[in-house]
Design a protein around this nucleic acid. Structure first.
Lengths: 168, 168
DNA sequence: ATAAATTTTCAGAAATATTTGAAAATTTAA
DNA sequence: TTAAATTTTCAAATATTTCTGAAAATTTAT
């Protein structure tokens, strides 16, 4: 396969992958494009490469920046804005984990904490089933939160070398 | 808060949470409903509780079964089919991890392996950037695959107690 | 066998999410 | 300043996903 075709497949594949994870296809494709671009790109470059409109490109670039996955780059003497993405995949994963933890795990934990306050007869089967599930989710969620927090702070080598030891 | 309101919020919250993770809202709501039901439910019970159509209920129940998150229950003397969900959250998480690994991680790894075969001049900047990213994703993916495999096989206490040791 | 109960399917409808493109706002150069 | 270049916004259009409901298929009881 030649490079052009491989790039196309990479971008399409990354886009489909993102879709499974609740990430907008275009955002994932822009991310893929930036990942494999040795140099920063402009919005127009991306519009052309991915065949998308100006508005779409602009919104998704800004979302990517919001996720901490892309950043603006100033290029001396250039009028247009340029963008790059972090190339180190491990850093990318850590950044995504960090954001999703904040955006999704934390709200679920808050909900479970609120639902733990539910009043009712503890001998009632319905009540018991409910309480057990809520408590279980909260416990696991807290554990996950702690684990992910450590993971986010970990340095790659430390983490990987530990994982290899523990989970072989 | 009383139990009825708490259940409602649990089901809505779980549905919204699922949506963020590429899981259909109704499927997540049915799962939530089953999680907090002390006894098995029929399709009609779910249709009524969640205010959804027969077709929708049927399809999503079968999807849940496909994910290994719900199962049919035979109740002696009853004509209708009943369904339950695994209540142990840790088992639920393991099951989800297992399915997502199969459905999503494995295809991405296959794609990366294919893209590693891309032909081109290794001194070309474009080629180099591409190869580095593909290789990086594959490496991390293989590591994740191995780790998740261990996690799937692990017993809860073993896993949690190890994690607590490693990641405190 | 027959028919009632129940489950499954799926085309079209509805809801949701994404994208476009043109206008408005902002930035930059001269 | 002024105006050209660039970025941002957002209402409407489009695409995608999900849901409905009725018909078909299957299962069960008699």
């Amino acid at each position: 396969m030649n490079l052009e075709e491989a790039k196309r497949q990479f971008i399409m594949g990354w886009g489909a992958f993102g879709t499974n994870w609740g990430i907008n296809r275009t955002m994932a494709q822009i991310h893929a494009l930036l990942l494999i671009s040795p140099d920063p790109l402009t919005q127009d470059d991306m519009m052309e490469a991915l065949n998308i409109s100006r508005g779409n490109a602009n919104m998704n670039i800004r979302d990517l920046i919001g996720w901490g996955l892309a950043e603006r780059v100033i290029i001396a003497g250039e009028r247009k804005e340029y963008f790059t993405a972090e190339k180190d995949i491990w850093k990318v994963v850590r950044q995504i984990v960090k954001e999703r933890k904040k955006r999704e795990l934390e709200p679920i934990l808050q909900l479970m904490e609120k639902l733990e306050q539910t009043e009712g007869d503890k001998r009632d089967r319905e009540m018991k089933a409910f309480t057990e599930v809520v408590t279980g989710i909260k416990k696991l969620g807290l554990q996950a939160d702690k684990t992910l927090e450590t993971l986010i702070k970990a340095e790659e080598n430390w983490f990987i070398s530990n994982l290899i030891k523990i989970f072989r």
